[in-house]
Design a protein around this nucleic acid. Structure first.
Length: 568
RNA sequence: GGCGCCGUGGCCAAGUGGCUAAGGCAUCGGAUUGCAAAUCCGACAUCCCCGGUUCGAGUCCGGGCGGCGCCUCCA
């Protein structure tokens, strides 16, 4: 595991054998989240799942900083309380986490719920001479900490800055506030230094100690938190406790918004036809809420959480990721291959991939391949997957093996002609299931494919039904025009049982009715009509059906067991 | 100015001294299909440039060029 403190990978060892304690810096909840806020939660969710899989007992804390200058400012702007601002954005954050499948967080402490611990910690620092009071504020005296700067690799002398607005109150320009005295009208708490509130940084030292102890295993956060936030946390905690705060500091790379949709990075070669980048001027550069980044919830609505999670996990967590929506869609294309495999499994066995029970631990997952070449290949994939994960949680490399495994399984289905032959309880089926169980075992580590992706659009289905019905009506009209009454009548007779009535009026045909399952039923009717046409070699009609559905975004796929339709 | 990261095929991306440089997306062939879709098979890179260390480097060192982050709030 890579450690920011030592700047290299280190063998994994824990404070307590068999146990891992993790603290991840969560959001300051003054505004809605953007996608960058999910990098840490998603990777640490995987880290926890993986460590658990490897036999560790893991405790994971994500804090909420709900008291801060920016929350106060936001509350004043909107004429609501700081608490209300916090509640609103915590709800947003929780929605985002849930959508991305982050569900392994054990504790969600809020700074305002830990005020006693915070004050106690500050008090101890003052008592030990590492901090001092100044007109109701309390500052940490950086020059008293010999280790200061070790995480972010800097020393106090070389640091610039004149100390900001509060310079006159501080002994040194690098000193930072542990406690801020309350201005009139601001939320405040009683303390030995009068009414006030904690500075940024101290809440994490207090909450991590409260829940994980004075020394814990892993502290995570975005790379942008290394300085000053984590540097100051170390200073506070280690001066107070005279022992290491954390064994591993783990920082995820930052997301950057990339301009020019479709072109992610690379040199700006603009030859030939150039997509005129008019319209929305995409912002390029680091994402931050202060620059207006947000809208994660809307992005989730458009793309779905699993795509976004997969997109984030394709890349190693420490690298910078250029983010734009087409890139997420591309990731989605990769995911689709897995979804198709799951459907294939259902076609063959009638069973649901999501219902498969996979081994929860590394030992249980071992495959007994014997002389089965498919399982031997699956074993090899599994091994490489785990090797990648063992190397600083290399999810990108691990995902490569997932695709490899999917290909092996698909090939097995092809080679053994599992589709359409009605095989059951054969060794080939057993091999299929066993290899899918391994796929499930591995994807579970990444928190993927835990449950079927919910269909995002019920309203869209209503619209689609309308479009499909128009197609049905057109088709019937054309059949009548060609005096192909068999087909025309088959259409009207076919929609009747679905609860749809066709009425021929002077201006054209109108339709009405149709219940909840109408879309599915109409699609089946169209598929039947197409089969009939094909059987009578009426390819003009059969192709017309498929082509027109394609124009609506519906794809027909002929399988050994029958035709399936999917909406893009 | 100080500290640090990155530069692999059309795009994304793994790889941290050694068999044929993973994988995905896209593209082009082939098998399959009435035609498609799906699936499978195949094609598609010598790793920004220069120099060095080494029997051997994308992988280590030095120097360029280019992109980016932190030093102020930030996942």
């Amino acid at each position: 595991m890579y450690n920011t403190l030592s700047k290299k990978k280190e063998p994994f060892r824990t404070v307590e054998p068999g146990k891992v304690s993790i603290y991840l810096c969560g959001p300051t909840v003054y505004d809605k989240a953007h996608i960058g806020h999910m990098v840490g939660p998603v990777i640490f969710d995987c880290i926890k799942r993986y460590l658990r899989y490897c036999g560790y007992e893991v405790t994971w804390v994500v804090n909420i900083t709900d008291v801060d200058d920016k929350l106060i400012k936001k509350a004043n702007e909107r004429g609501i309380t700081m608490l209300e601002v916090a509640e609103e954005n915590i709800a947003d954050y929780n929605f985002n986490l849930q959508a991305l499948g982050v569900d392994t967080i054990d504790h969600f402490p809020r700074a305002t719920d830990c005020m006693d611990e915070i004050i106690e910690l500050i008090d101890s620092l003052v008592e030990q001479g590492f901090a001092y009071e100044s007109q109701g504020d309390v500052y940490f005296e950086v020059s008293k900490d010999r280790g200061y700067g070790k995480l972010s690799n800097r020393n106090v002398e070389q640091m610039q800055g004149e100390g900001g607005e509060t310079a006159v109150l501080k002994r040194g320009p690098a000193d930072f506030a542990l406690w801020k005295t309350a201005k009139p009208g601001e939320p405040s708490w009683e303390s030995p230094w009068g009414k006030g509130r904690p500075g940024w940084h101290i809440e994490c030292s207090a909450m991590s100690r409260k829940l994980l102890g004075e020394t814990f295993d892993i502290h995570g956060g975005g790379l942008d938190l290394v300085f000053p936030h984590h540097e100051n946390e170390i200073a506070q905690s280690e001066c107070c406790h005279s022992k290491p705060m954390v064994t591993y500091w783990a920082h995820n790379g930052l997301l950057r918004a990339s301009s020019a949709a479709g072109k992610v990075g690379g040199r700006g070669e603009r030859e030939g036809e150039v997509a005129s980048a008019t319209g929305e001027e995409a912002v390029s550069g680091k994402m931050s809420r202060s620059k207006g980044a947000g809208g994660l919830a809307q992005l989730i609505e458009r793309q779905g959480g699993e795509r976004i999670r997969f997109f984030l996990l394709r890349t190693h967590y420490r690298s910078t990721v250029l983010f734009n929506e087409p890139a997420i869609e591309e990731a989605g294309s990769g995911l689709d291959g897995f979804y198709r495999l799951f459907k294939r499994y259902a076609r063959i066995t009638g069973k649901d991939f999501y219902e498969l029970v996979a081994p929860l631990t590394r030992e249980e997952g071992e495959i007994n391949a014997d002389s089965n070449p498919v399982l031997a290949a699956a074993t090899n994939c599994r091994k490489k997957f785990l090797t990648a994960m063992d190397d600083d949680f290399n999810t990108g490399g691990a995902i490569g093996e997932l695709f490899e495994l999917a290909k092996i399984i698909n090939k097995h289905c092809d080679d053994s002609q599992l589709e359409g032959t009605g095989q059951q309880d054969t060794p080939a089926i057993a091999t299929l299931e066993r290899s899918l169980i391994t796929l499930k075992e591995l994807t579970s580590i990444l928190g993927l494919f835990g449950s079927a992706v919910a269909k995002p659009q019920t309203e869209g289905e209503g619209a689609l039904l309308g479009e499909v019905m128009q197609l049905v009506i057109d088709l019937r009209a054309e059949s009548r025009a060609k005096k192909n009454f068999a087909t025309a009548d088959a259409i009207r007779d076919g929609v009747g049982p679905i609860g749809i009535v066709l009425e021929d009026r002077a201006g054209g045909t109108e339709w009405s009715g149709g219940g909840a399952d109408a879309l599915e039923a109409v699609m089946r009717l169209l598929i039947e009509l197409r089969q009939t046409a094909r059987a009578t070699k009426d390819f003009a009609t059969s192709d017309a059906i498929r082509d027109r559905l394609a124009a609506l975004g519906v794809t027909l796929e002929d399988r050994a067991g029958g035709t399936e339709w999917t909406k893009a």
